[in-house]
C-alpha cells in the first residue's frame, strides 16, 4: 500500500533521476554519435544525430597513434602509482584508527574528512611553488606525490572501514599462536581486508584518471602528459576535420573508468556506505 504522498514522492524521485541521467547521458550520446561518423558527416552537426554510415575507423586510427597510446600509458601510470601510494600511506593510519582507542580519535577522523572538502583549486598556487622548491615540477614523481596526498583522506576512511570488518579476535588468536603485531597485520588483517583495500585502490585510480588540473599545471612537456591533459590541448587546436577523432579519443579515455566502476560498483558502494549503517 502506497499513500498518495508516497506516489508523489516516487514520481518526484524518478523525475529527478531522469533529469540527472539526461544531464550526463546527452553529452555522452553526442560523443558516441560524433565518434561513429565519417569526416563528411561531421558537417551535418546535430541535424543527423544517428550517422548514416556509422564507422569504427576513428577508433582504429586513434589506437594506432603512438602519441595517443603514450598519453594513455602516462595516465595509467600516474593514476595507478598514485592510488597504490595512497593505499600504502593510508593503511597504517587507518589501522590505528580502527584498532587503537586513543583520545581525540573521532575528532581526528573528522579533521581528515575536512581536508577532503578543501578544493584542489585553493591550494594550487602554493602547491605549485612548493613543488618547484622541491624540484618536482615537470616530473611524474611530483604528480604522483600530489595524487597520493589528495587521495589520502578518503582512503583512510575507506581502509578504516575495511579494517573494522576484520574481527579483533582473529588478531588475538594469532597473538596466541605466537605472532607479533606486524606479522599478524601482514598475515591476518591485510588479507582479510583486501576486498576493501582493492575497492579503495580502484576508486583512487578512477579519481586520479579523471584528474586534470594537477597534471595540467605540473607538466608542460607533451611526452609526459596523461590523456586528460592531451585531449584538452587537442580540443583547443581542433578543427572540424579532426572532431570525429577527438570524440573517439574521448570515448576511449572514459571507457576504462566507466568499466572499472560498473564492474566494481557493488564493492565500491558497499565500501563507501559500510560505516554509514553500523554507525
Amino acid at each position: 500500500m502506497v499513500s498518495r504522498g508516497g506516489i508523489l514522492a516516487n514520481v518526484a524521485t524518478y523525475a529527478a533521476a531522469v533529469l540527472i541521467a539526461a544531464f550526463f547521458l546527452v553529452p555522452l550520446t553526442w560523443l558516441v554519435s560524433l565518434a561513429l561518423r565519417t569526416p563528411q558527416e561531421i558537417f551535418f552537426g546535430a541535424s543527423r544525430f544517428i550517422p548514416e554510415n556509422p564507422t569504427l575507423d576513428n577508433f582504429g586510427q586513434v589506437l594506432r597513434d603512438r602519441g595517443f597510446l603514450n598519453y594513455l600509458w602516462n595516465a595509467l601510470k600516474l593514476s595507478g602509482l598514485g592510488a597504490l601510494g595512497s593505499v600504502i600511506v593510508a593503511a597504517p593510519a587507518a589501522y590505528a584508527f580502527s584498532r587503537f582507542d586513543f583520545r581525540g580519535r573521532g575528532v581526528m577522523m573528522m579533521a581528515i574528512l575536512a581536508v577532503q572538502m578543501v578544493s584542489g583549486l585553493v591550494i594550487l598556487i602554493p602547491l605549485y611553488r612548493y613543488m618547484g622548491w622541491l624540484g618536482l615540477l615537470e616530473t611524474h614523481v611530483g604528480v604522483i606525490a600530489i595524487y597520493i596526498a589528495i587521495g589520502l583522506p578518503i582512503t583512510v576512511w575507506l581502509l578504516k572501514t575495511a579494517f573494522d570488518g576484520v574481527p579483533i579476535v582473529l588478531e588475538e588468536a594469532a597473538a596466541i599462536d605466537g605472532y607479533g603485531h606486524f606479522e599478524t597485520f601482514l598475515r591476518i588483517t591485510l588479507p582479510l581486508a583486501s576486498p576493501g583495500m582493492a575497492s579503495a585502490l580502484i576508486l583512487n585510480m578512477i579519481l586520479n584518471w579523471s584528474q586534470f588540473l594537477v597534471p595540467f599545471i605540473m607538466l608542460s612537456r607533451d611526452a609526459q602528459w596523461p590523456i586528460s591533459v592531451a585531449i584538452y590541448n587537442y580540443a583547443g587546436s581542433t578543427t572540424a576535420s579532426t572532431t570525429h577523432l577527438l570524440a573517439a579519443a574521448c570515448l576511449i579515455t572514459i571507457l576504462p573508468a566507466i568499466l572499472a566502476f560498473l564492474l566494481l560498483q557493488r564493492a565500491i558502494v558497499s565500501a563507501l556506505t559500510a560505516g554509514a549503517i553500523k554507525g
Partner: peptide, 20 residues
C-alpha cells in the same frame, strides 16, 4: 610476557578460525 611467549593455547567462543 606476550601471549606467544606463555606457551598457552586458547579456544574462543566464536572459534576465531582464520577464514582465509
Amino acid at each position: 610476557l606476550s601471549p606467544g611467549e606463555r606457551d598457552i593455547a586458547m579456544v574462543f567462543q566464536n572459534y576465531a578460525l582464520y577464514p582465509h
